[in-house]
Design a protein around this nucleic acid. Sequence first.
DNA 1: ATAAAAAACGTAATAACGTAATAATATAGG
DNA 2: CCTATATTATTACGTTATTACGTTTTTTAT
Lengths: 150, 150
Amino acid sequence: MSTKALRKEEEENLLRRADDLCRQNNLRLTPIRERVYRELVQSGGPVGAYDLVDRLSSEKKRLAPVTIYRALDFLRDAGLVHRLATQNSYVISHGQPDVNAMKIMFVDSKTGETIEVHSTEVAEAVKKAAEQAGFKSVSPFMEVEGEIAH
Amino acid sequence: MSTKALRKEEEENLLRRADDLCRQNNLRLTPIRERVYRELVQSGGPVGAYDLVDRLSSEKKRLAPVTIYRALDFLRDAGLVHRLATQNSYVISHGQPDVNAMKIMFVDSKTGETIEVHSTEVAEAVKKAAEQAGFKSVSPFMEVEGEIAH
DNA sequence: ATAAAAAACGTAATAACGTAATAATATAGG
DNA sequence: CCTATATTATTACGTTATTACGTTTTTTAT
Ligand SMILES: [Zn+2]
Ligand SMILES: [Zn+2]
Ligand SMILES: [Zn+2]
Ligand SMILES: [Zn+2]
């Protein structure tokens, strides 16, 4: 099978999973929200909010930034999308939401390329450090900058 | 000794350390840079760049944002200040720069309050995860959101 | 079915954050 | 002193995110 076809299949998987997740949690994956999610899936990496505005706007209909931000907020709340604070961009979340794992987004400082890794080891170590700091709970998402080994 | 006096003493310690560090590395802690650093020290927490603009501007002399950003860039490069990407703010760095430790900034999701913890355990776990992700090097700074146990 | 309530969306304006370009000052080494 | 380099000032511009308010759509309860 061609890589293109594979990517298409992966795409459909993600969309279906998103759909299921929303249905199970009584969340409404409206057309706009799905379009934003799909665009992030297809891009295969982080995309800025205003890039999404451009990509999802047509000649006839220009979407407003707030429309995109609202959709992104929904997707983030649903755990489907991460915001990369260091990059001012947004990226889909891969992998099953493993409750005990820390979801680490490694961000290449130069290219902005991202790779997501889930690690229970990091989760535990961070939890321990959090207790030391007097934090009772910590976000299961982290962002770490670094350099990809090319 | 009063807590106020203690804080004042801590303040002076930090200023002195910053001064020493710059001297030892042939970095110039110019008046503006020192004022920015001092303001961050005195605030005792994260401060936004434009807040710094306001606080360091007087009636007669209004500082331009770029002035603050440059000072912040210097302080960050010197390792004296962290940028909190999730908060769009800046905060002083505590503790000796332990090369083998991950410097974790825990950020309270509600108040923005921060506590810094250094952990070699987290550093190692993250390093392992980074290798898994194909990253050859990672930043020694992390930011983790969570909730302070009050 | 109908009315009330809640959620989502459209539109416009604005706030907040950050950078570029250029010129003026200050500093350091020969 | 002279020159190269670093720092600062000022203005303008670009990007990112939110607020306000009214309308439409969907959900919930009667
Ligand atoms: Zn939300
Ligand atoms: Zn994820
Ligand atoms: Zn720098
Ligand atoms: Zn630190």
